[in-house]
Simulated scan of single mutants.
Amino acid sequence: MTQKPQSVQADVVTIGESMVSMQPMAEGPLAYAPLFTKSIAGAESNVAIGLSRLGLRARWIGRLGVDPFGDLIQSTLAGEGVDTSLAERDPQHPTAIYFKEFKGYGDPNVYYYRKGSAASRLSPEHVKPEWFHGARHLHVTGITPALGERTADAVAVAMKMARSQGLTVSFDPNLRRKLWTEEAARRTLLALIPLCDLFLPGLEEAEFLLGELPEEEQYGQRFRDMGPSAVALKLGERGAIGFEEGRAPLRVSPYPVARVVDTVGAGDAFAAGLLSVYLNQALTADIRFERALQAACAMGAIATQYRGDWEGLPKRAELDRLLAGGRDVTR
């Protein structure tokens, strides 16, 4: 019998690596950039910030170095209302950083410096039951399993432990080809899908995991056959398709935007928007998933409108106005 959480202290727990993000202040080759701005980034902490801004209680679990970069990450997350009280500080290994390069066309190039980081040392022995005490839901991505020798095992243990304590689990494969071989990525990601309740792949990730299928709807059924009760397939500028048991595939239109500045972080914003509604127990099941997908598409689109992974994410009232077709009063 699963153990139900007692008092709810966190709606969502996220586990992963946060890094310091360095962005040049002007477009052009990174080698010649004289000035940089500093922020933080990381798929799971991006989701935690997005959820916090949308009114949910988020708890971020991660490992940071005992260094100024770790201080920056922990204080920034706390300042955004994210619970970081269970984050671990490792005096032997550093906090990771990464650089973005904007050349004025296409997506930015990203250069990671995370090998040997404190987060890459995550192992099953680090996973603790108290991470999930008083929580309703766990969100993880496929980035953490790629970081170190035992990080994939740690994520699997965390997913199993969370479910044993009565939490539901969402999993975004968030494929990062720079971090591991395609064979290892496919094998590991496929093994984690049965451990989640809600699976959030993009179309390119679905094709990577299952090969090209004749119809997009077939991906949803194939993934649901692996165990998840719901699948949200991200289609980028074409919106999304949702799959739930007993319902026909649900297509949701994209949220319109005039131009795209930076797509990094859009998938994390999508996840935050989706979970902010999907976990709303006040909504009936027949409308909850559709509204969750609409919020997810809007959040993902909004995230492409600014540089940075999370800085421009809206608060709940702002998102509600945008979904209702309203505009903010700016002057």
Rank of each mutant, 00 (worst) to 15 (best):
M1K: 13
K4P: 13
P5S: 12
Q6T: 14
Q6M: 10
V13C: 08
I15W: 04
E17T: 07
E17K: 04
V20F: 04
S21D: 15
M22A: 14
P24G: 03
A26K: 13
Y32K: 08
F36K: 04
I40Y: 01
A41R: 09
A43Q: 08
A43G: 08
G50T: 08
R57D: 01
R59K: 12
R59F: 01
G62N: 06
R63Q: 09
L64K: 00
G65W: 07
G70K: 03
L72M: 14
L72I: 13
L72Y: 09
A78W: 11
E80I: 02
S85T: 14
S85N: 09
S85G: 12
S85A: 11
D90T: 03
H93F: 07
H93L: 08
T95N: 03
I97M: 15
G106Q: 03
D107M: 08
P108H: 11
G116A: 03
S117I: 02
A119G: 00
P124R: 00
H137Q: 10
T141A: 00
T141E: 00
P145S: 09
G148M: 05
R150D: 11
T151G: 01
D153F: 01
D153V: 01
A154H: 08
V157I: 02
R163M: 02
L167K: 11
T168I: 11
T168L: 15
S170R: 04
N174C: 03
R176D: 00
R177M: 13
L179N: 00
L179P: 01
T181K: 00
E183A: 11
E183T: 13
A184P: 08
A185D: 05
R187C: 06
T188I: 04
L192F: 02
L192D: 00
P194L: 09
C196P: 07
P201L: 11
A206W: 13
A206H: 11
E212P: 05
E212G: 07
P214C: 01
E216S: 10
Q218A: 14
Q218D: 11
Y219P: 02
Q221M: 08
D225S: 09
D225G: 01
M226W: 13
G227I: 08
V231Y: 09
K234Q: 05
E237W: 06
R238S: 13
G239N: 09
E244Y: 07
E245Q: 13
E245G: 14
G246Y: 12
G246M: 12
V252S: 04
V261Q: 03
T263A: 14
G265L: 10
A266C: 14
A271W: 04
A272W: 03
V277T: 14
V277S: 11
V277N: 06
Y278I: 01
N280Q: 12
N280Y: 02
A282F: 02
F289W: 10
E290L: 09
E290T: 09
C297W: 11
A298G: 07
M299G: 09
A301Q: 06
G308D: 07
D309N: 04
E311S: 11
G312N: 06
L313A: 02
K315C: 12
K315W: 10
E318G: 07
E318C: 08
D320Y: 11
D320A: 12
A324K: 07
G326N: 05
R331C: 14
R331M: 14
